[in-house]
Design a protein around this nucleic acid. Sequence first.
DNA 1: GGCTACATTTAGATCGTTCCAATCAGCGGA
DNA 2: TCCGCTGATTGGAACGATCTAAATGTAGCC
Lengths: 352, 352
Amino acid sequence: MATDNTHPVHRKITLNDIARECAVSRATVSLVLRGSPLVNTRTRARVEEELRRQGYVYNRAAANLRRRTSSSIALVLNDLANPFFAEFAAGVDAAVGDAGFVTLLGCTSESPAREQAVLGSLIEHGPAGIILSPAEHSGAEHVLAALGARMPLLLFNRELGGDLPEYAHWDLLMLDNQRGARLATEHLIAQGHRRIAFFGGHGDSSSCRQRHAGYVEAMQAAGLPIEPRWRVECAPTRLDAASRTAALFATAPVPTAAVCYNDAVALGLMLGLYQRGVQPGRDFAITGFDDIAEAAVSMPSLTTLSTTPRERGRQAAELLLQRLREPAASSHRSIAPVKLMVRDSSCPPPTA
Amino acid sequence: MATDNTHPVHRKITLNDIARECAVSRATVSLVLRGSPLVNTRTRARVEEELRRQGYVYNRAAANLRRRTSSSIALVLNDLANPFFAEFAAGVDAAVGDAGFVTLLGCTSESPAREQAVLGSLIEHGPAGIILSPAEHSGAEHVLAALGARMPLLLFNRELGGDLPEYAHWDLLMLDNQRGARLATEHLIAQGHRRIAFFGGHGDSSSCRQRHAGYVEAMQAAGLPIEPRWRVECAPTRLDAASRTAALFATAPVPTAAVCYNDAVALGLMLGLYQRGVQPGRDFAITGFDDIAEAAVSMPSLTTLSTTPRERGRQAAELLLQRLREPAASSHRSIAPVKLMVRDSSCPPPTA
DNA sequence: GGCTACATTTAGATCGTTCCAATCAGCGGA
DNA sequence: TCCGCTGATTGGAACGATCTAAATGTAGCC
């Protein structure tokens, strides 16, 4: 709980040092620091000069202690190495910084146990609020145990398993996965495809379930068949996707297009198609999800759904800051829109 | 300096609350928290029960204030959205967390002005030390102005321009750019190439200069010619690299291989070659630098230099922690090794 | 001179923790 | 009975800032 692995720090210049040297009181120096109009112009100048001269640095921790405030926001991510979350983190940090807060970072590596430990360690530093992208299979009760119900929390990207206590005002920011996959599917249908597969991802991932639901929705609305063998699961990596390509072509009739779980899977599928002598974007249509950097420059360029993770980061930070302003407001669910980027990979079906 | 954009926080349970309820003193509760052997087993049990019951959370800021210690490390990056730095950050955070510290994050977006602002804001939170990957063109005097000379600092990836004050014990961790590029070039030479280009990157980037120097070193050691027109500059992006491909083939004799500044450039060059009807890995050899995730699954797979950014992150954190243990030790420069990953893109030259 | 009004400054308590020196109970030995 | 010793506990002063209420000086006015 209070294990000791901290480290002593060099002697620092304090308000007292400045006050003594200027022959004024601590309080006056404090007023100068905060730009109060109460202090005389001449004293202010003297004090400011002395602050510069001694290289004073403000001790925000001490101020926060006295004022019972906080100046940090914790950001807890399931996977920082994923470019999507890295961009998201950059967006969060920018907005958090603009608001005069600082970002406390924590990574959970998709482990609920680590998530609980990280949360427990971070709250001891007294953040004003927390942005959490939960680890897969993380439950509400763990988060509640680590944070208590009063800590302002914004959940990003995934819902928590288990029951939310209704007295916890936790906000939510999700991608519109379902609508995105529906848009992609509708686009393929409009191109003339009728046999469309849903490729990649795992059924136990909530984002994958939502995207699949959007696909089903569009197919049903168009009266098109949903063949179970056109639902191919794989890990969300290029490599695994490439190796599962054959599953699409096992038995006739074969699909002419695939809605992929995400861009990594889509690019892997492209690779797999090339290896079978099928040219994506001419013989077979593909859509992705995420609009990662490579999507625009792959061969063919990839039709996909743009999620603008940096924007999402800003939005997440702003939602949390809003919550800090009104702690008692009822909890808010936001669904971020996604945008279909039509490129070359979503060709019409070959006219047989 | 002390602008007010913080936010009040809900009433918290303190040592006093626990002490009162257990009819012991604050000091005893504090001893319990820190697992001191001084307290009686029965009182300890009573206090621990009460801590749990009231959902006490330790206030590390207050403790740090009293003990004049710190429990955070600041990590300041020029570009978090870059997967290389994202991995690096994940490594830093893991090691920092293992040591019982927490990571304060800051992004500078390659702007020296922003870097100074971010550093200024972060030190007010009293980190024990700082890991800084400087913005391009950031100078030692700015960093010194923001931090003072006593703050333990580890520079990663880039040196600072301007003069280092010799009294500042700043440590350094760099990639072995020069040796890496030399290895790649030597590998191409061993494959039989004699006309080898250096492709991509900008001359004002120090990592690019180092890599180019390694290329020159290998070429000269082998007695091979270095044609100025085989040094093609471009932005380190796939798109720009693809569009500069033609520059390699402007005048005969044309090169049969290229050492690329990094993987993004190498993948862009592949794209550009395909568009000219040249097949990389058969008609033309390519090497990259970084070993990003796609390098192993591109077509052809990319021979490149692995920099293991997550490992570098751990290493950076550990170097800084070591410095905290011995603040007065003389400054230390570490060069991280890179490893040549031979894959399909570095074919022998076509036997004409 | 005595009064109020205004501009500036300040002493001292406080935030939640840790540290130091002091206290206290119990017990055994001289 | 007195002394010293050990084990357990504690009061009060820090840490570096802020806040409150009160003090100080200085004019202006009758």
